[in-house]
Simulated scan of single mutants.
Amino acid sequence: MEWIYSTSDPILETLILCILILVMIIIVSRIIGLTSFSRMTSYDFAFTVAVGSLIATILTSSTSFVHGTVAIFGLLILTLITSKLQRKFNFLNKAVANDPILLMDGNKILHENLEHEGIHINHLMAKLREANVMNLDQVRAVVLETTGEVTVLHKSSADSNEPFDEILLRDVKRKV
Score class of each variant (00 low, 15 high):
E2I: 15
E2S: 14
I4Q: 08
Y5W: 11
S8T: 14
S8F: 07
D9N: 07
P10K: 05
P10C: 03
I21W: 04
V23E: 02
M24Q: 03
I25Y: 01
I26M: 09
S29Y: 06
R30Q: 07
G33Q: 02
M40K: 15
T41F: 00
A46G: 08
V49F: 11
V49K: 05
G52D: 07
G52E: 07
I55S: 00
A56F: 09
L59M: 15
T60M: 14
F65R: 11
G68S: 02
T69F: 15
V70W: 11
V70N: 06
F73L: 15
L75G: 07
L78I: 14
L78W: 13
T82H: 08
T82V: 15
L85M: 11
K88N: 01
N90L: 12
N90D: 06
N93S: 15
V96E: 10
A97Q: 08
A97H: 12
M104S: 04
G106V: 10
G106M: 07
G106T: 10
N107S: 14
I109E: 10
L110F: 02
H111E: 15
E112N: 14
N113R: 10
N113A: 05
L114M: 08
H116N: 06
H120A: 04
L124Y: 04
A126Y: 04
K127D: 03
R129Y: 00
A131C: 07
M134S: 13
N135F: 11
L136S: 07
L136K: 10
Q138F: 10
Q138W: 11
A141L: 06
V143N: 04
L144M: 09
E149T: 09
S156K: 13
E162I: 10
P163H: 07
R170L: 13
D171P: 05
V172R: 03
K173V: 10
K175A: 05
